[in-house]
């Protein structure tokens, strides 16, 4: 059964653990923030992370099967829209719209 003190303790513990993962690098690396290695990572790591976040969004899909075609088409739509129009919102909503149409039509289901 639900117990409010337990829930509050869980929220506090999860808040602490989550904050810790976010604050640790700032605390540990504060003194060496200008180190060339960190500047290098600051420049080249975010692009890699962005790509990894795209791939990670589909980690529960079978990316080598026909079932993944709608996602691929959606991503292509985002890419093409963005290269043509360079309007972030349009690319994202347009790509999502394409994806939703394909999924709801059930063509690749």
């Amino acid at each position: 059964m639900e117990s409010v003190p337990y829930l509050i303790a869980v929220i506090a513990v999860m808040t602490g653990a989550t904050f810790l993962t976010r604050v640790l690098p700032f605390v540990l690396l504060y003194k060496v923030a200008d180190h060339p290695l960190l500047t290098f990572l600051g420049r080249f790591l975010p692009p890699a992370l962005m790509v990894l976040l795209v791939i990670c969004s589909f980690k529960n899909e079978e990316i080598l099967s026909v079932g993944f075609v709608p996602e691929l088409l959606g991503l292509v739509a985002v890419l093409v829209l963005h290269l043509l129009m360079r309007n972030a919102l349009l690319s994202i909503l347009g790509g999502t719209g394409c994806y939703m149409l394909i999924v709801q039509s059930g063509v690749f289901a």
Partner: peptide
């Protein structure tokens, strides 16, 4: 159904923007 695609789409657009800078 399918609305969850906005987040990968966002990351995709941001990746393209990062490429334009880098």
């Amino acid at each position: 159904a399918g609305i969850e695609f906005v987040l990968p789409a966002l990351f995709m657009v941001l990746a393209i923007e990062q490429y334009r800078h880098l």
